[in-house]
Amino acid sequence: MQGGGKRAGGVGSPPTIAEDSPAPHYHGHRDRLRARFHETGGDALPDYELLELLLFRSIPQRDVKPLAKDLIQRFGSFAEVLGAPISRLTEIKGIGPGVALDLKIVEASLRRMAKGAIAKRPVLSSWSAVLDYCRMAMAFAEREQFRILFLDKKNAVIADEVQQTGTVDHTPVYPREVMRRALELSASAVILVHNHPSGDPTPSGADVRMTRELIDIAKPLGIAIHDHVIVGRDGHASFRGLGLI
C-alpha cells in the first residue's frame, strides 16, 4: 500500500538540505581556519584551533569549536588531549569511540615520528630529540612507566622497551632484571626514563636510590648508565644535569 507524505530517501535517511538553503554557519569558519593554517602553519594557532582542524574530519556535520574548547579545558593542552586514554576522552559529550580512536591514531603517528628522529643515531648528539620522544611517549600517561633505551657501542638505540607499568605514583623496578635484559641485547649503555603523572618531574629519594643501585650493578658488567630522565607535564629532570650521576 502506498502511503502519502513519505520523504524521499527511505526510512532513517537524514533530512536533505535544499540547494538554495544557506550552508551551516560553521562551514565558513572551517574554510577560514584552514586558510590560516595554510598561510601561517600550526605554530600560529592556539591549541583549541589546531584541535578543531583534527576534529573537522572526524565530525564533518557539526560545529566543533565548543567541543575543542571543552577538551582543552578538561585536559589542559593539545598534547594532553592526544595523550588522554580513550576511556577519559569518551567522557566528554560529543566524543564517541570513533572520534577518540582518531585522536589516538594522531598521537601514535606523532610518537612514531618522534621515535624515528632518534632511531639509529647517536643519542648523545641528538639529546633534544631524545627528550622530545620521551615526553611524547610518557609525559601524559596516567600511570607511572619505567622505560629503558638500550644503546650500542656507538650510543645508537638498539631497543626501546617499557619494562614496568605501575600506579599513579609508583613503578616497581628490578635492577637485576634490567641488567639481564641489557646483557641479552649486548647493550653497552642504557638511558633510564620514567614519568611522574603528577606533572612534577622532580626526582624522589626512591628514584635516586634506585638509580644508584642500578649504577652499582651495571659498572662491573661494563654497562654505562648515561642518564635517568623523569618526564612530566611540567617538563623534565635529568639526573646527569642535576649532578646525581
Rank of each mutant, 00 (worst) to 15 (best):
R143Q: 15
L124H: 14
D132L: 05
C134V: 09
Y133V: 05
A141M: 12
R112M: 08
S109G: 11
A129S: 12
A139Y: 08
K104T: 11
M138I: 06
S109E: 11
L124G: 13
A137G: 04
S125R: 12
R112E: 13
C134W: 06
K120F: 06
R147G: 00
M136C: 12
L124C: 13
K120T: 08
F140K: 03
S128A: 10
A100K: 10
M113P: 02
V123F: 04
D132K: 14
V130D: 04
R112P: 04
A114Q: 01
I148E: 00
Y133E: 09
L103Q: 06
A114D: 02
A100M: 13
I105C: 03
A139G: 08
M136E: 14
R147C: 02
A108M: 14
S125K: 12
M113I: 11
I118E: 03
R143T: 15
Y133F: 13
I118V: 15
M138C: 08
A108T: 15
D102M: 10
P122V: 07
A117W: 08
L103Y: 03
C134K: 06
K120C: 05
I148H: 00
S109P: 04
A137H: 04
A141C: 13
R111K: 10
L110I: 01
D132A: 14
I118Y: 05
R147W: 01
S109A: 11
A108R: 15
I118D: 02
